[in-house]
Simulated assay, not measured.
Amino acid sequence: MPEPELSASLIFSRTPLAELVGLARRLEDAGYHRVCFGEAWREPVVPMTATLAATSRIGVGSAISQIYPVNPVVTAQQAAQLQELGAGRFTLGLGLGAGFVVERWFGVPYERPLRRTREFIEVVRGVLGSAEHGPFSYEGEIFRVRKYRLPFAEQAVGVPIHLAAIGPRMQELAGELADGIIVGSLHSPRSMEETKRRIDIGADRADRDPNEVALWYYLTCCVSNDSERARALARRSLVYLTQYPHYRCVYAEEGFGALAERIAGLARERAMERAEAAITDEMIDRFCIAGTVAECRDQLRRYAGYPGSPVLHLVPFRIEEDEVVESFRLAAQLAQAPAGARATT
C-alpha cells in the first residue's frame, strides 16, 4: 500500500509561535504534504506567514479562516501576499465557524451563511484576478466593491480556495465554486460517498469536472508511547465535538445521536469525567486513530479506500498543549515507511 499523503492541522492557544514553526519544519522534514492553521484561539495569518518564511517545500494553508469577522477584499490581499511569500505553496481555506462563536466573540450576526459564502468566494477571486483583468467591481446582496485593483501584483494571483463544508448545500456549493472541500472530523465511508455525490451535484451545476475538487478530511489523531493514554486523549476530543450542533447532527447520522446529546449535556454541566467515560470504544475506532506510532500506522489503513487525503489534528481540549505537541512529533513518523517495509526490486 502506498504511503498516505498526510497533512497536519496545528491549533494551539498558548504554545509559542516559534515552537509551532519548529513543529511545522519537523513535519516538512518528515515528508508531510501540508500544514494547516485553524482560526480558533489564534488568528491564522501570522502563524502562516511565519511558517512560510521558515520552510521551503511543505504546503501551508488555513483550515479554516472564518468568513464572518473579516472582509473578503482584505482576505484576498492577505492571500495574495502569502502566495508571494510561499512561492505558490499557500492554500486559502474558508469556513463559517460556529454560530455561537461568531456572535459571542465577534459580535456579527450569523445570517445567510450560503449567500455570504458564495459572495465571499466571488469577491476573493475577483480581487485576486484584478491585477490582470482590470479594476474589480461587485454588487452583491451582502458585499459591494468599487473598482479595486491589487496594487502589488502584476498578474492574476492563483490561490486555491478550499471550503469547509459539512451540510449538503454547503458541500454542493464547494463542488460548484471551490478548488477543494474540507470535511470535518466526523465521517465514515458512507458519509464520504454522500459527500462525493454532493460535490458532483455542485460541479454539474457549474458544468465543471468534479475531479477538479480536491477533498481533505480532518482525522483526530492521538499518538503516544502509551496506547491507553492516546485513547484517553481521543475521548476528550470526541467530547469536544459534541459541543457543536453541526457535529451532533453528524453523530446522529452515524448512529450516535442520543449518546452524543447525553455527552453534550454532561459537558455543559462540567461533568467532564462522566462525559469522557460515556465515549465508547466503537466511537474511538470509528472516528479517530489513537495509539502508538505502529498502531496508528495500522489504523490509517482503514482510510485507504477513502477519497481525498487526511488532515491529522488533535484539539487541545482538556489536554496539555505540550502533550499535543508531543503527539504531533510522534505523528511525524506516520509519513515515513517503517524500517524494513520498503519493497526491493
Rank of each mutant, 00 (worst) to 15 (best):
Y306N: 08
L27N: 06
A337W: 12
R262P: 00
V124F: 15
A153M: 08
Q77W: 01
T220H: 13
Y218C: 10
E320Q: 08
A341I: 09
A214M: 13
A164V: 10
I161Q: 07
P338Y: 09
G97Y: 03
V145S: 01
L92G: 06
M192I: 13
V239L: 09
P160E: 08
Q77D: 10
F90Y: 15
E141L: 14
R286F: 00
V239T: 13
V315A: 05
Q66D: 01
A153R: 12
G184W: 15
L312C: 08
A341C: 10
I64T: 12
M272K: 00
N211E: 15
T344K: 15
I67H: 00
Q171D: 05
L82P: 01
L241Y: 13
A156L: 10
G340M: 09
D285T: 03
E320K: 10
I11K: 01
S191A: 09
A98N: 04
H187G: 01
V46C: 02
A30R: 11
D226R: 15
C288M: 05
I284N: 00
L27G: 08
E43N: 07
E172N: 14
Y251A: 11
E321T: 05
L177N: 09
E194Y: 06
G129C: 12
I67T: 05
A339D: 08
M1Y: 06
E176T: 12
A332M: 04
